[in-house]
Design a protein around this nucleic acid. Sequence first.
DNA 1: TTTTGTGAAACGCTTCACAGCT
DNA 2: AGCTGTGAAGCGTTTCACAAAA
Lengths: 215, 215
Amino acid sequence: MAEQVSEQTTNRLSLYLRFLNELEAGGVRTVSSKVLAARFDLNAALIRKDLSHFGDLGVRGVGYVVADLRQRLRQILGLDRCLNVTIIGAGNLGFALADYPGFRKEGFRIVALFDTLPEKVGGRSRSGVPIHDIRDLKQVARREQITIAVVAVPAESAQVVVNTVVEAGIKALLNFSPGALRVPPDVKLKSVDLTVSLESLSFHLARGVDRPPRP
Amino acid sequence: MAEQVSEQTTNRLSLYLRFLNELEAGGVRTVSSKVLAARFDLNAALIRKDLSHFGDLGVRGVGYVVADLRQRLRQILGLDRCLNVTIIGAGNLGFALADYPGFRKEGFRIVALFDTLPEKVGGRSRSGVPIHDIRDLKQVARREQITIAVVAVPAESAQVVVNTVVEAGIKALLNFSPGALRVPPDVKLKSVDLTVSLESLSFHLARGVDRPPRP
DNA sequence: TTTTGTGAAACGCTTCACAGCT
DNA sequence: AGCTGTGAAGCGTTTCACAAAA
């Protein structure tokens, strides 16, 4: 077990975990790869492969024990520890993310916002997350044990902000700015590019979602 | 040209286009696949393959003419027409997206917000996008020629909202709610799952971004 | 010479199919 | 009988390598 695991696999593990939470809440004891596959429109073998990367998690003839698999997935995804998150950029998007209830629900704690504007620093988000000066990032990051930074600043300042975050010793970044960003190899950067997403939809509209037959 | 093109290819086309905008603004005449490749950390052959799906866009020995390729990519991505977008859910995230400057910059027009709460309906976002009652979606969608909907509502209401959007005749959806959603085959759904993104980062932290050598 | 466009090879992910366990 | 774990096959994407064009 535990060689390299593809990003696609880990993304699916998150989905499985979310479903297992529901199943456990509903008092379901075991679940088969077939049931999981039906839920997510995937092939059952793929789910077994995904899980088999981490040992023999299932029971032949029975399936997976919901409580055990859930526990194990939380551990694999690192959700059994405390995960403190900061958001850089106290603009509309930064505030929205700081107050997004979905994060707290899954065990992430948003502990700080950062900005450069003096009129914002010292304030708080609606839900009470304090806004610090970006120059204090390193200090606050250490004090609050921040391990993940969400970057929600305009494209022009994105690379500078990313550099600051990396210098503060944070090794995991979720970026919402458009454009290519560079990070050292020991830092994990994941980007959500809203423009690319919309343009992908535009492409499908332009081409016709049901492709018209070629002449 | 113009068979099926993978989503990965179309996503990259968006990135190329953004860079071409910069190049044209900077007065650059031509660009080679090698330069594009360096910019995005990709293989030059991949860029040529991506572009070759749409005809012979380059000139051997020279590269690609920036102005021409930009124009062609805008056309391919459907950005040469008017693209009216609505945002469903006038919560923190919905407002942030409605006022996100990046969308307008690329030619998308956010023309309406929708919500169910009477105290929100009739109001406007900070940048002036009017908030309508979700029950008026079909009517407003037709009047405003809305072709893309962004879904930013809580998970519980997501499927219902998606159904309403589909019934209103909108064929392209960008979804921010967690969980599996069903749409008919002629509708294009793209989802951004913030929890999955954060959990993916958590996984890499838990495992060590530089993987520790196996014992 | 430079750089595109493209078959062929390489690679990685998914599905198949079945041995093995309960 | 039922279901997992997995080698082998299948398939889609990326990279290689080179002929063709400017």
